[in-house]
Amino acid sequence: MVNSNGFRQGMGIAFKLGLEMAVATALGGFIGYGADQILGTKPWGLVVGIVLGSAGGMLNVYRAAMQMTKELEEEEKKTDNPQDTDEQN
């Protein structure tokens, strides 16, 4: 049960981060494609857009991962010294 729970959590995180990455890349590609259509710079807009988009996606993934690490650390801190929290309660 604990194992499957951890597995599901891991899948959740992977899905979350993957989504960030995919969305940003797709958005960059979309913007680049639109620029191509308007400016007639096929295929360079798409290329630049996807590169920038994936960079943005990485940025978002990085931020999300940092957020998760912070939360995890806090949880660990809480579980490390339960006596303290008990006293506070």
Binding site: A24, L27, A55, G56, N60
Partner: peptide, 10 residues
């Protein structure tokens, strides 16, 4: 532009 895309992607 990277930041703009990352913000729009959110």
């Amino acid at each position: 532009p990277i930041e703009i895309i990352s913000m729009l992607a959110r």
